[in-house]
Design a protein around this nucleic acid. Sequence first.
DNA 1: TCAATCACG
DNA 2: ACGTACGTGATTGAC
Length: 592
Amino acid sequence: MSKRKRTGQPSCKKLLKANEFAWDTETTGLEDTMEIVGLSFAMKAGEAYYVPCPQDFKEAKKIVKEFEPALTHPKAIKVGHNIKFDMKLLRNYDVIVADPIYDTMVAHYVADTHIRHKMDVMAEAYLGYTPVPIEELIGKRGKNQLSMQDVDLEQITEYAAEDADITLQLKPITDKLVSEVEGESLLQTIEFPLIHVLTAMEHEGINLDVPFLTDYSEVLLKDLVKIKSKIYKLSGVEFNIDSPKQLGDILFEHMKIPYEGGKTKTGQYKTSEDVLSPLSDKHEIVDHILNYRELTKLKSTYVDALPALVNPNTGRVHTTFGQTIAATGRLASNNPNLQNIPIRTDRGREIRKAFIPRDENFLIFSADYSQIELRIIAAITQDEGMLEAFKRGEDIHASTASKVFGVPLKDVTSEMRRRAKAVNFGLAYGQSAFGLAQNLGISRSESKEIIDNYFAQFPGIKKYMTETIEFAQQHGYIETIMKRRRYLRDINSKNPVVRAQAERNAINSPIQGSAADMIKLAMINVHNEMLKKKMKSRMLLQVHDELVFDLHKSEENTLKDLVEEKMKTAIPGLPVPIEVGMGVGINWLEAH
DNA sequence: TCAATCACG
DNA sequence: ACGTACGTGATTGAC
C-alpha cells in the first residue's frame, strides 16, 4: 500500500465535499460502557485523518457533533467496516448516521458468506497489506492491556487512520465481488437498510426484571442442592456432575448401568440427553441427572448470567446481532444471545417472564410467522398438494399425515400427526430414513415406507430436492428467493460423507435463507413505517421467525395492523398464504 | 483452546 | 461400507 499522509484534523467542510468517505471510531474498549476516543476519516486512498476526542463526555460530544453534517449528509456515502458498531456508538452522542451507507464487511458477506470478513484478513487478501495489529498498541489482552485512551497520539493516529484508509480501499474490491455474484440488489434493498434497523434495536435494548431472576436463582439453587445429594446417595460417591467424563465413568463403570451408545471422539462415554433418556427406566439416578442438567443450564446460562449484562448506563440488556455470521443469511445474536431464551420446558420458559416492558406505559408485543419454512418449501417447490393444504388453512402436519398414511383428515391419530410432523421437519434438513427412524423410535423399514409415501404424495418436493442438488453441482452455489447465494465447495467432493453433508446444505439453505430474507424485509418495512408515523413503540428483538416489540399502550391496534401487514407482504406474489400469530402481555412469555 | 453439552428457530 | 438433520451461542471441564 502506498504511504499514508496523516494530517491532524479534517474540517467537516472537506468531508461534505466528498462523494464518499470511510470512517472509523476508536473507543475505550469493547465493554458496554465504552466511549469514543477518536474518529478517523479517509476521503482518498493513502490519505486519512484522525480526530482525537477528550475524555470528558460533554467535550467529546462537542467534537463528535461537529461531524454530524457529514455523517448525516444525504449525498455522501458513509463507508465503514462493521459500520453498525460505529453507528450504535454515535447514537450515544445523539448522532444518527443517515443513508447512504456502505459496509465493507456486510458487502463481503453477501459476496461469500463463508470466507472471513475481518478487516485485517481482507486487507491482507485483497490489498496485500498487513495492518498494525491492535496488540502492538495496547498489548495482549489481559490485566496489563491498555485502553486506547492511554496510547500516545502519534501511534493512535497511525492505527486509526490506517483502518479508515483500508476500509475506503476495500470498497471497490467488495463492490466488484458483490457484482460478480449479482448481489447488488440484496445488498442495497436488504442488508444495508437492515443495518439501520439493527442499530436501532441494539441501541434500544430490552428491560429485564432483575429481582425476579434473583428470586428464581434461589429457587433453582435449593432444588439443585436436593438433586445433587440424591445423585451422590444413589451413586455412592461424590463427584463433579458437571464433568461429562466423570459422570460417564460413574454411571457406566462404577454403577455398571448398561450402556449402548457410541463413544465420543475422545473415547469417552456419551452422556448427552439422547443417550441418557432411554436409560431412565434402568436406574432412577438417570432422571435426577437429567433434572440436574436442565437446572444448571438454566441457572448458569440465563438466570445468573443475564442480570450481569444489564448496561449500567441504560438499565437495559443490549444484544449484538451478527449480520455476517450465519452461512444461510440468518441473523445471529450474542453477548447475550437473546435468540435462545428457553421456552420448551416449564421451568425454562419461566425465564421469559423476566423480559418486561420499558415501563408502565408499555406492553411486550410478539409477532411470529406460522410454519414459515414449510410455507416457503411449498412456495419454492410449487408442490400442488402442499400449496392446497395451506390454501385451505389446514393443520399442515395433520394434512400431511392424512396423505402419507392414506386416511381421511378426520381419522388422523395423534401418533400419525407426530410422525408426519417429524417428516415435515426432517425434510427441510435432508434427513435420511435412518435419521427419521432414530428420531421417531421406529424401525428403518417403517421410516423408509413413510418417506417413500411422502415423496409419492408430494412429488414437487422430491423434484425440488433433485433439481436443487443438480443446480448446486453445476454452479457451486444455491440461492434464496432474494438471490442470496451460499457457495457449497464440497458439493462435488469425492468423499461421500462430505458430499452428502453439502447436499443437505443445498436442500436446507434456500429454505432457511429465504425465510431469513423475508423477515429481514419485514423488519425494514416495519421499522421505516414506525419512523414515519413517529411511533413510541420500538422493535426490540428478532428470533428468526418472530419479532418482539416494546408496545406503547396507545398504539396497540396501529402496531398490530402494521406489523401483520408488513410481515405478510414482505415478499409479495408468493403462491402460498402467509400467516402471522400475534400476542400482547406484561412479559415475553405472556405475549406468546 | 477444544470438546461436550444444551438452549433456541 | 460409511454415516446418518439444518443454523446458531454460552458454559463447563480438561488439557
